[in-house]
């Protein structure tokens, strides 16, 4: 188990990290970034696996099973959606140059 104060330090540093990452982001990336952070908290899957891995009664096992199911959905869905959004940002880059040259 983690020492309480150590955890407090982790909380504090991680909170600053999250704040700093978002603070200077252009508006166009807000949606992908929200989706990306949505994927990152899919790490809850790991916790749900641990909970199910230590479940002993049928009730605990069924709740744990639902937890893993939901956590896996969060992680996989978050990844696919974010990747699809960012994919378009990449593909529009070369187009952008070509078109603006055409325009001139």
């Amino acid at each position: 188990m983690i020492d309480g104060f150590l955890a407090l330090y982790i909380f504090m540093l991680a909170a600053f990290t999250g704040y700093e990452i978002i603070a200077r982001v252009p508006v166009i990336l807000h949606t992908p970034l929200m989706s990306g952070s949505n994927f990152v908290h899919g790490i809850v899957l790991v916790g749900a696996m641990i909970a199910l891995g230590h479940a002993e009664t049928p009730l605990e096992m069924s709740i744990g099973f639902i937890g893993v199911l939901l956590g896996a959905g969060n992680a996989a869905g978050g990844y696919v959606v974010t990747e699809r959004m960012l994919e378009m940002f990449k593909s529009s880059k070369p187009d952008a140059k070509a078109v603006s040259k055409e325009a001139k």
Partner: peptide, 15 residues
């Protein structure tokens, strides 16, 4: 989980 969750919590609040 603590780190990833807190980073998202802070970033999400700002967003």
């Amino acid at each position: 989980m603590i780190i990833a969750g807190t980073v998202v919590g802070a970033a999400g609040t700002l967003l």
